[in-house]
Design a protein around this nucleic acid. Structure first.
Lengths: 343, 343
DNA sequence: TATAATTTAGAAAACGTTTTCTATATGGTG
DNA sequence: CACCATATAGAAAACGTTTTCTAAATTATA
């Protein structure tokens, strides 16, 4: 059983136009007719065809979002933020998981283009900006999440990664640590680099010269944190008193690696993470970390996008960069160096 | 700059029909013309309007998926499985996060209906089957994930929860434990109930009579696992030697609660989880658990759906239930009772 | 009461495709 | 060389809406 506006019109004994009007809450139809039409709609369980509507209006009331492969802890909450804000405003979501691969991002773009989304939020990881530029040139409204504009005329929203990195490091410094390992995430990601910059700046401000062997490679997975520390321990032994990992997962991996070697946290080494993932309070010991306001990021990004979509031209020209602040969550994985037995 | 099939036709100096034929790889156009048209398409960067296409064919090449609120660890991987299978087959995904609320599920349904998705995968949690029935009656192809059919004529795919629960319990039993706490998830979820049934059956098979105070309420969050154990300990003290939690997150919370009371895992009490989340190997101690093949579930669900979509009527009548197997992953959180100092 | 203003309603065109039906060009067959 | 089959191509209708323009009915105004 397939219902169209035509059916409704016939049954309600009005014209198609009238039905359309009540569908869209337009004026020009008497309360009485409106009610009658509404009844028929209700009764039939009719809902208008989005495709026909989109075809006609070239407005889909849909926003696209592309996120990198794993819908981890992090992106999940961001998406929640996006979804609720979108829904509140009568917009729907269409997502593409693009697996870090350009080709698929291009596919995603074509998809958005074909689906006629009104705009898109790109949570992107790539240095390759061509497809973003392409989108913009094709008149898409887009906002970039967790990434720098890189000269693109585009809205962005990101966590205050630099300050977060700075706070974390400063915190450890103030606790008396000076030999602080940094486990970085994927180094081609802006977010990762900025946390690193914060780390460097904090060190510099305290007049501590940085040891390059102190920065370890990771890729944001628990596993990479684990093996980074395991490897380091094997090569250098325990010549540090603290670790700052660019996210919680790697911090947790690091703690595990230390634990495996009989090194205890925080007595022997302090550890601080980044994210405040839902797991952080429950690891042993509870993780001190820099909290990202993930849901807020999603919310802000969506608001930015929607305001862009609904503004005719005018301020489209001036792209906005919003930086959402970061909080230091003190738990038990980092303590003053004085309370340790030095070795 | 907006391109339509008409533009392409004009520029390539052919009819609209011909362009359409090229677009859809139909025969009836000479290699020469085909190439010419293809060139124009390429040059213009033209991509056909999905809405026009859908309007005409009432086929969207899109499948909808509705998942409960948090895109946790679990659903993320499932969605990955769905997405890759869908993409491989030329289908796109449109998701709705429905926040456990019926009203919003109804909204999701309307959304699917309006968007004319070709089918939907519902990862649902509710006892209320009305909207599913409604969907089916309206001719939607749908498959239910992680849920029983409840008499609905519908495909389902789920983890072998019962066997998983049984294996976990049996494993602890074989280790010599008999006082085994069970932390259940949301009790109105089929998956949770079945894990519980497995637990009960294993106990029964070993001739151990079940103690009702041994089953604790949880809601699948780490926090709920934590407070369940904390509460229990306060009320009963340590009168058990093992815990089986209905998922890893609760298991981790439980471990934390034990740890806070100075009770160590696995020396004092063994713990086993369910899921094999990415965190499981990295908690302290590494978590023994029942592994769910999450990506596989997504894959299977999608294959089921696609086969349904692409079969004209015939075997639409016989719904299929597939149960994906489960694996016991032995790590370090559960050990034989004999190696403990009893208290 | 006549007329202007306004409210309520409908007819028809358009959005960008696919599809059916028809026409022409091309090639093969006797 | 005539004829038929087949390959290639196009015209036009249809999908379900929104929107513009026009008409009728109602209400307000003088």
């Amino acid at each position: 059983m397939k219902y169209t506006i035509k059916n409704v019109a016939k049954i309600a004994n009005v014209s198609i136009t009238t039905v359309s009007r009540v569908l869209n809450g337009e004026k020009g139809v008497s309360p009485k007719t409106r009610r009658r039409v509404l009844n028929v709609i209700e009764e039939l369980g009719y809902s208008p065809s989005a495709s026909a509507r989109t075809l006609k209006t070239s407005l889909s009331k849909t926003i696209g979002i592309a996120v990198p492969d794993t819908l981890g802890d992090f992106y999940g909450e961001v998406i929640n933020g996006i979804e609720s804000t979108a829904t509140e405003n009568g917009y729907n979501l269409i997502v593409s998981l693009n697996h870090h691969i350009i080709k698929e991002e291009l596919a995603a773009v074509n998809f958005f283009k074909a689906k006629k989304v009104d705009g898109a939020i790109l949570v992107t990881t790539l240095g390759d900006d061509d497809y973003v530029r392409f989108l913009i040139e094709n008149g898409f409204d887009i906002v970039l999440l967790d990434r720098d504009p890189h000269g693109l005329k585009v809205d962005t929203v990101k966590t205050d990664n630099f300050h977060g990195g700075y706070m974390a490091t400063e915190y450890l410094l103030n606790l008396g640590h000076s030999a602080i390992l940094f486990i970085q995430g994927l180094s081609y990601l802006d977010s990762s680099r900025e946390r690193f910059n914060g780390y460097k700046k904090a060190l510099k401000d305290k007049g501590i010269k940085r040891d390059d062997t102190f920065v370890l490679d990771g890729d944001f997975t628990t596993k990479s944190g684990y093996s980074a520390i395991k490897r380091y321990l094997k090569g250098h032994g325990l010549d540090f008193t603290a670790i700052f990992a660019a996210n919680d997962q790697m911090a947790i991996g690091a703690i595990k690696a230390l634990h495996d070697k009989g090194i205890s946290v925080p007595e022997d080494v302090s550890v601080i993470g980044f994210d405040d993932s839902y797991m952080a309070p429950y690891v042993i010991p509870p993780l001190t970390t820099i909290k990202q306001r993930r849901e807020e990021m999603g919310r802000v990004a969506t608001e930015l996008l929607l305001s862009r979509i609904n503004s005719r031209d005018e301020r489209k020209k001036t792209p906005r960069q919003v930086i959402v602040p970061v909080d230091l969550i003190e738990r038990e994985s980092a303590i003053p160096i004085s309370s340790k037995r030095r070795r």
